[in-house]
Write a protein that binds this DNA or RNA. Structure first.
Lengths: 351, 351
DNA sequence: CTGAAAGCGCTTACAG
DNA sequence: CTGAAAGCGCTTACAG
């Protein structure tokens, strides 16, 4: 096997070349202040000359620690999670950790397999965006393994570190914006019954409608897949209703993109024929036609906070253990053309 | 430290519980046929009872092999590379390998750091889409480490396994399509001088123009960043030209999306005001307004082939070593509205 | 400031 | 079919 061919110099070889013990070499590699500068330099020189490569696996085994962190992501076809992943990988790399990545594609089976694999790889910690349908017991099980866990985007109770978004607030904000544009019949596209995040988003929408005493027809809450195809189906449903909603709040930007596209296909324009709001502010939202109004929570910031939360857990001792972090970012609404009809924007300008 | 707390049962503990030696336990875990079924069952039972977790790192250290593979990606903000990553991760996981992921964001410095880290992690192999500006010496250097390397999308010579796309053919196809629509003044957006892939793509475009005896103005070859912003700049440049090009071939879908968006902002429509072709057929290309004509090479297939190429290297002995794989997928053109004006499509229908 | 010794959790010849 | 022994490449008390 190709992989059996590799076996470069070890600290033993460096020790021999530099005329010291391997303990000394090890300490030099760890930049220990115990070693005399002169000796250290001699060792480093020998390491360089031999083309030495540190074996982190051996170090981890002996040192009973680990410098890899597992990252389990549910949906990489959604650019929001990619942004999150990139931010997390960046912060962890800066802190000297390596990221073991796994993609579950929302499959519980894959998620189970992947978690077992990460445990066998002895990850120091886990950051996870759980697949839809993950049972509430999972976080406790992972914690029972002795592996710190940070949940991102999808909360699963108060006992586990969680970094997410105040979805209820966000969707209230989005709905409020549409009401402010004069809309009274507003639909919600991408309802998924039983999923915590969908419940929060629907809740934000419903509470705002109620606040303004606006009735909500049952069929305005449209249960479609959380994809562009779902958005397409939602538009078709909306244009079959009479009287039909004049605005729609979408579960996320993926759904909203499908809505914009189906409207275009029908020869209509978002903002005029139907006001559209998305959620996530993925990079593409700025370049859709028309540009998409959407909720911004900062994937980069969320990823950074998630990483830092995990890093803090990794360096805490059992005495100073902090209570679970429950951080929910407050989203902002980025208003673009998709939610503002020509007339409405005129009204705005006058105000 | 939190990470010091973990130390579950080892094969030693299982051996004690099952009343056998740890050699036997090890063999059972490897499903060796040498061990009597009865003994094996007793061992497995003990492992289960103790909640044993296999320590892959220790096994790799002792066995002088490795079950992790490094994946170095240049640009995860481009959904094409995400598709590639997902496919690769899936195939490797099926084969029992774990994927160590790193994102360079086209930074040579990050790439260097990341490769060193992967080497220290003792990866069995590397799949890499090199950052722009990577020097030609890098593949040979990595190979000198004894780590099999498969390059994806960005070729760097014949001596290293490479999975990519026949860009020259693809861009000839795209240009041919536009000529077939009656265009004679065709621009190329996203030229990046000195980059191999850009050279190939430009070459495909130029050769097709030449084949049809169509002159190419220097300023039609527009050097812009390979992003939506680059696409925006290209449109502005095109509409400043007189006579202006009536069609544009874009370096990739990211650039094309910027072109579609800037046209929309100007109140024009791609396909009518300017025919637009992209490259990559990212999932979003189907849902742009208007839908984007683009080159399809199959990120999923390319990722699968790249993984399989690497797996083949890992299981080959030094005697049966195969010559470098140089696989270049032949792209197809997916024709959508962005390149077909109302009139032109009428012509098509008549044909 | 440096070295000798033990050991992390496994695998792999080698005996029997 | 199973066990005893050596060892992968490191780190970490412990001596001196």
């Amino acid at each position: 096997m190709h992989s059996n061919m590799k076996s470069g110099p070890t600290i033993q070889d460096i020790a021999a070349a530099a005329g010291v013990s391997k303990s000394t070499v090890s300490l030099v590699l760890q930049e220990s202040p115990l070693i005399k500068a002169e000796t250290a330099e001699k060792v480093r020189e020998a390491a360089r000359a031999l083309g030495y490569v540190y074996n982190r696996g051996a170090a981890n085994l002996r040192g009973k620690r680990s410098t890899t962190i597992g990252m389990v992501i549910n949906d990489l076809t959604n650019p929001f999670f990619v942004e999150l992943l990139v931010a997390i990988e960046r912060v962890l790399a800066q802190a000297g950790y390596t990221t073991l990545m796994a993609h579950t594609a929302e499959s519980l089976e894959t998620q189970t397999r992947v978690l077992r694999s990460m445990r066998e790889q002895n990850v120091a910690g886990l950051i996870m965006s759980p697949a839809l349908g993950t049972t509430d017991e999972l976080p406790a099980e992972i914690q029972s393994w002795g592996i710190p866990l940070v949940l991102v985007m999808r909360p699963m109770g108060p006992d586990v570190d969680t970094i997410g978004v105040d979805n209820s607030y966000g969707f209230a904000l989005a709905t409020e914006h549409l009401v402010g544009q004069g809309h009274t019949r507003i639909a919600f596209a991408g309802n998924r019954k039983g999923y915590a995040v969908a419940n929060q988003r629907r809740q934000g929408y419903l509470s705002t409608m109620a606040k303004h005493s606006l009735p909500v027809n049952d069929d305005w809450i449209i249960d479609v897949p959380l994809t562009p195809e779902g958005g397409r189906d939602a538009v078709r449903a909306i244009f079959d209703m009479k009287p039909r909603p004049t605005a729609v709040v979408c579960y996320n930007d993926q759904v909203a993109i499908g809505v914009l596209h189906e409207l275009d296909r029908m020869g209509k324009r978002a903002g005029k024929a139907l006001a559209v709001v998305g959620c996530d502010n993925i990079i593409a939202a700025e370049h859709t036609n028309p540009p998409l109004t959407t909720l911004f929570a900062g994937a980069d910031k969320l990823g950074t906070i998630a990483s830092e939360t995990l890093l803090a857990r990794l360096s805490e001792t059992s005495e100073d253990e902090k209570p679970p972090v429950q951080y929910f970012a407050v989203p902002e609404l980025v208003v673009r053309e998709s939610s503002v009809g020509a007339k409405a924007s005129h009204v705005n300008a006058a105000a």
